[in-house]
């Protein structure tokens, strides 16, 4: 009894530590991969940690049009995504909190983060930030159903509504669910790129505001709020990444092996994103919806496959 509790406590502690400390590593890995593919040295892998430390010492500047809503964006994003991180299993280890239907809660936390980010952008009254906000909400309209249809397919094949069961209970165990699962992961990969503002949907490193989506929304942030924005973005990479990684665990690893595998896959994911960013061009803004619709189609098709 006590032993299981202790084991569980260790797992939770590892989960929390991973969620808290690991995220800033991922953007660094992506950047490094891209730099290496392009033959450059690139920034250090830990660059984001340095940035965060520097920003947290800086003074913030607030525009005169802004209100408290301006701060709600970064704060809300981090709070919501951090809460979501409590619901998603890392590897085959169940999440610290899990209950029937937590998948929906998980998705809505991301909605909350988006809502607050967009409002925060609109609070500045800047034309560019409004433009970014409009794009953000528009593309989310297509990303959201893909996410949910994926949940539907997994729920149908596992008979559960909890992320910890849906993702961790190996979908490969019965071959009938194999093809649908791959389709779901493909659809979610598209959602992953869109939600994290990655090429080919958005280019986090662009320098032309007119073509930005996420970056243009946070133009006015500075100091600690900007640190929260950056941290929040990396946290999203990790939490949503866990969604993609979970089903890849073909069987439940015990103990620390699970964590090692998870971290390893996380690194692989970051490298993968870096590779995608290196080898694809960014889509024209009006082509993005088609890309996202492909995600919906993949997940919907996954569900239909489960029906037959």
């Amino acid at each position: 009894m006590l032993e299981t509790f202790l084991v569980r406590a260790v797992h939770v502690a590892l989960h929390l530590t991973t969620a808290l400390l690991l995220p800033p590593l991922l953007p660094g890995l992506i950047a490094k991969t891209k730099a290496m593919v392009a033959g450059r040295t690139g920034p250090p892998v830990l660059q984001l940690y340095y940035d965060l430390a520097r920003l947290s010492r800086k003074r913030a500047v607030f525009s005169r049009t802004t209100t408290w809503v301006f701060l709600a964006g970064p704060v809300g994003t981090v709070a919501a995504v951090a809460t979501a991180s409590l619901l998603v299993p890392f590897g085959s280890s169940p999440a610290p909190l899990h209950f029937q239907g937590d998948a929906v809660f998980f998705a809505y936390l991301f909605g909350l983060a988006r809502f607050l980010t967009v409002l925060s952008a609109l609070d500045t009254g800047s034309a560019f930030e409004g433009m970014g906000a409009a794009r953000e909400v528009s593309f989310a309209v297509l990303a959201e159903p893909a996410l949910f249809l994926g949940f539907a397919a997994l729920a149908k094949s596992t008979g559960s509504l909890s992320l910890s069961t849906m993702l961790a209970s190996p979908g490969f165990s019965f071959s009938r669910a194999m093809a649908p699962l791959i389709l779901v992961l493909a659809g979610w990969a598209i959602v992953y790129l869109a939600e994290n503002s990655r090429i080919p949907v958005d280019d986090p490193n662009t320098h032309l505001e007119l073509t930005m989506i996420h970056e243009v929304m946070v133009l006015d942030h500075s100091g600690r709020p900007l640190a929260l924005v950056l941290y929040g973005a990396s946290l999203k990479l990790l939490v949503l990444g866990a969604l993609l990684i979970g089903p890849l665990f073909t069987r439940a690893f015990g103990g620390l092996l699970n964590w090692a595998a998870f971290w390893g896959l996380l690194v692989l994911l970051a490298v993968g994103v870096g590779l995608v960013e290196s080898f694809t061009a960014r889509l024209r803004m009006n082509r993005v919806p088609q890309f996202l619709v492909a995600g919906i189609l993949a997940t919907a098709f996954a569900f239909l496959l489960l029906l037959v």
Partner: peptide, 12 residues
């Protein structure tokens, strides 16, 4: 941290 208010919005 201390912060500064009352500046115009950064408009690129």
């Amino acid at each position: 941290r201390s912060f500064r208010e009352g500046v115009p919005t950064w408009d690129c």
